[in-house]
Computed example of a mutant assay.
Amino acid sequence: MHDWKSELDALVAETMAFAKSLKVEIERPRPPPKEAVDRGSLSVADYGGSERDEIRKRVESFKAHQERFMREREEYADSLLRRIRPIT
């Protein structure tokens, strides 16, 4: 039982000696890459009018996206069922 402790101590000592013998060079952080899109050219959509109109238009846009996603899911499901029916 005492044998494994001495092996462990020897392994730790060997590992520490190896770690001290290594020369580690720390890289300096690279500057962030230049952006492909100039952020100054991006602007927030201007709906014109009051905040209520802006909210209404955004909700309409959101609903249109949701309807499109639902329609695409239904078309995909129908196409899968059409492909599976001849097999079964």
Rank of each mutant, 00 (worst) to 15 (best):
D46K: 15
S6H: 03
R82A: 13
E27N: 07
D78K: 15
L42F: 04
K57A: 12
P29F: 08
M16P: 00
F69K: 14
K23A: 04
I84V: 12
G49E: 07
E75S: 13
K20D: 09
F62T: 12
M16H: 02
V59P: 01
R52H: 09
F69P: 00
I26P: 00
G48K: 09
Y76P: 00
Q66R: 13
L22D: 00
A13K: 03
E67G: 03
E60D: 12
E74M: 09
I55R: 14
A64E: 10
D53C: 08
R28I: 04
S50Y: 03
M70D: 11
R30H: 06
E35N: 10
V59S: 10
Y47T: 05
E27M: 06
Q66S: 08
V24W: 01
K20Y: 01
T15Q: 06
E51H: 12
I87K: 08
E14A: 14
E25S: 07
E67A: 14
A77R: 14
D3L: 06
M16L: 08
K57N: 09
A13I: 00
L81H: 11
S41G: 02
S50G: 09
P31A: 12
R82W: 06
E75G: 08
D46Y: 13
D3P: 00
E7A: 02
A13V: 01
E60Q: 10
S79R: 15
R68A: 14
G48E: 07
R71C: 04
D78N: 15
R71W: 06
I55G: 02
E67W: 05
E75T: 11
M70I: 07
I26L: 08
D38M: 03
V44R: 14
F18K: 10
E60V: 03
R85S: 11
D46A: 14
A10G: 03
P86F: 02
R82C: 03
E75K: 15
M16E: 12
